[in-house]
Simulated assay, not measured.
Amino acid sequence: MTQIHPTAIVDAAAELDASVSVGPYAIIGPKVRIGAGTSIGPHCVVEGRTTIGRDNRFFQFSSIGAQPQDKKYAGEDTELVIGDRNVVREFCTFNLGVPQAGGTTRIGSDNWIMAYTHVAHDCVIGDHTTLSNNTTLAGHVTLGDWVTVGGLTGIHQFVKIGAHAMLGFASAVTQDVPPFMLVDGNPLAVRGFNVVGLKRRGFDSEQLAAVKQMHRLLYRQGKTLEEARQAIRELGSQMPSAKAEVALMDAFLADATRGIAR
């Protein structure tokens, strides 16, 4: 049987796998679906049309699937979708989407989300991210895979953060951050590329050299953005084992709607 503490309130319409555990004083709403092995900690509230995958752990006092903090929201049946094996620490708030933006807030798998993190409506978070304490994502923010966000960092609405980027402590992020870059500050500045993180993930010497060269082309050679993009595209043929990284960067720059941090 599902392990539900007698003080928890679980709506009869909620769909919980038999291996789900629900802690004391937690509340689970009628449109919630929770997959195998997931644990919901004491005093958590999970509501709205929220789907949670397998083997997640929610620590105490989080608010998951509440209405978006958007004045245009009028009670529409929007949703929050969370993947597998995420760790969500205390006092986190994840909101539903709004219909004007597709209506879905989406969090991937294998993320480490620390205390007091806020994920606003229609954000999209990839896999293997680390969001440190008091990370704040405004609406429509996109985080690629393996992004690391330092504590007390705020990310402006509609900003995109590329895969493998690292945002330092207490940063104010108002423009898109390209993949692999290391940024911090207020105003935000690019400090280099995330060499330590990339080495930990097994990037080989040619991949690291390609990322280093892309950083130089974007930030060290006085090129316009279009000139830098053209030079970055040419790296794909010069460094065959780094084609995926070059393609990732080129695709990101093509879709950078707020301008990139420079």
Rank of each mutant, 00 (worst) to 15 (best):
S39F: 10
S39H: 13
P42W: 08
P42L: 10
C44L: 03
V45T: 13
V45A: 12
V46L: 09
V46C: 09
E47L: 12
E47K: 12
T50L: 03
T50M: 03
T50N: 05
T50A: 06
I52Q: 03
I52H: 02
I52P: 06
G53R: 02
D55Y: 12
R57T: 15
F58I: 01
F58P: 00
F61W: 13
S63W: 02
I64L: 02
Q67G: 14
P68Q: 03
D70W: 06
D70M: 02
D70G: 02
K71F: 15
Y73Q: 00
A74I: 03
E76F: 00
D77N: 14
L80G: 00
I82L: 04
I82G: 03
N86L: 09
V88E: 03
V88R: 01
R89M: 12
F91A: 11
C92W: 02
F94M: 13
F94R: 01
F94A: 01
P99R: 13
G103Q: 04
G103K: 05
T104V: 15
T104Y: 09
T105N: 04
T105M: 05
R106V: 14
I107A: 11
G108Q: 05
G108A: 08
S109R: 12
D110G: 00
D110E: 10
N111K: 06
W112S: 15
I113C: 08
M114H: 02
A115D: 08
H118Y: 12
H118W: 08
A120T: 06
H121P: 00
D122C: 05
C123Q: 10
I125C: 09
G126V: 08
D127W: 02
H128D: 14
T129N: 13
T130P: 09
L131R: 00
S132D: 05
N133D: 10
N134C: 14
N134Y: 15
T135E: 03
T136L: 15
A138I: 05
A138C: 08
H140V: 01
V141P: 06
L143D: 08
G144L: 04
W146E: 14
V147T: 05
T148F: 15
V149L: 13
V149A: 09
G151L: 04
G151H: 04
I155H: 07
F158M: 10
V159R: 04
V159A: 08
K160W: 10
I161V: 15
A163E: 14
H164K: 04
